[in-house]
Amino acid sequence: MRLLPCVAFFTFAALCSTVHPTTAKNYTVFVSPLRWGFVGCGRITNNFAAAVESLPRSEHILQAFASRNATRAEEYKARFGAFKAYGSYEELAKDPEVDVVYIGTINPNHFEVANLLMDHGKHVLCEKPLTLKADEAAKLIQRSEQLKLFFQEAVWSRFFPAYQRLRQELPGLGDIKTVMVNKGQTSGRYSQRLYRKELGGGALKDIGGYAIQFAIQVFGNEMPEKISAVAQLNNETIDTTTSLLIQWKNGGIAQLAVSTLAEMPNEAFVFGANGTIKIPNSFMQPEHFELERKSKTSTNTTKEKYPVPKVNHRLTYSGGAAGGTGMVYEAQEVRRCMQEGWLESPHMTHKDTLAIMNIQEAVLKQIGVNYDDLYKDGRYVGSLLNSVYDGV
């Protein structure tokens, strides 16, 4: 067994230099610093802003924060040294000095807010889940491509060095048989939002995307042939624990389990004919990568560690990368893509997002969960809690 320490901070672009996305240049590339706007001033926005603030000002600038609570926007402006604060999302959307906007609002608002921003020519990084309904995700992606705007679902896991290693090592595993992923946390300690239907809660939509994205990273983003799911629902008819069994055309199987009520190891495994890859706790923001290679005469195990970047502000989720420091990689990737004039990241494509959405939609139908009553005429009808949960 070999233990390899790996230097990861500020090396993501170098790791990705051999990747060539299919999307050609579509807008004027950014050679100046990206000017970031932030919509929704909650805990996740705090963490992403802390990540952006830790990067060189020659590359990233915190331009403006927007909240439906003007006082909260002013607090975030002061905390991170931004230039502007707005008491509405519309004001930020109209600001000509904002290039790209991070959406950290509650899940049901994503579709409406993303459309508002694109109305005003903004590039968008939107927290996952991109939307609660698959058809809304497809509309946003189609519109962004038509408008030639960079548009990305913020699946930050894909940009960690350990995921680059995963992509590099998958071919050497030979015929891949099975993927296993568990993602579970007692989310009540973080947010009651996850248990409220009117706020777009639910284990599958809020954290299930992490497990599904890992499976499609391995098996590809074509729609699986078979999907089977079971779930436990709460009294608001949204899932708190869901298990999935998925099979693709090539025979590959994924066994996935997610829960907002049970602590789980938060690990991911890939089992192939020639070896195994393990991403230990936590696979969604990995600091470790393990590879076991088998031959007829021996088994060789390599363990690698990727120390997470440092940030300058207090994070609102505890624990290293889990606290959000790994969002640095995501911010770097957005800038890399926009420097090239790309509409998407090659490591988290629009097709990847649509695959996640369509799998989730199939599972929701099986387990008896839908969010249709949250919308009227295609718009989120809101909640008395909407102003309280301006951001997640």
Rank of each mutant, 00 (worst) to 15 (best):
Q332C: 08
K305Y: 06
Y329C: 00
R335T: 06
V308Q: 11
G341S: 09
G341D: 08
K365A: 14
T301P: 00
K305R: 12
M357K: 07
L343F: 03
G326R: 00
G323M: 08
E304W: 00
R293L: 13
E330C: 07
M348E: 10
V381G: 05
E333D: 10
H313E: 06
T297Y: 05
N312H: 12
S295A: 11
L291H: 04
G341R: 07
C337H: 05
K365E: 13
K376R: 15
R314A: 07
E361T: 13
E333T: 09
H350T: 07
A362G: 07
D352N: 06
S345E: 02
S298E: 15
W342M: 11
Y371F: 15
M348W: 08
Y306H: 10
D377F: 02
G324M: 05
K296G: 12
Q339N: 13
E330T: 14
L384A: 15
S318L: 10
Y371T: 14
Y371H: 11
A321Y: 04
G323R: 02
H350N: 08
E292S: 12
E330P: 01
Q339L: 04
E344R: 05
F289D: 03
L384C: 09
L343C: 12
A322E: 10
A355S: 15
I367E: 06
E344T: 09
E340C: 11
P346H: 06
P307R: 12
Y375G: 15
M348D: 08
E304G: 03
A331L: 03
K296Y: 01
E330A: 12
V369L: 05
Y317S: 13
S383D: 10
H288F: 05
V381E: 12
V334D: 02
G323N: 04
P309K: 02
P286F: 02
L343T: 15
V308C: 08
G382W: 05
G319C: 06
Y306W: 08
C337A: 14
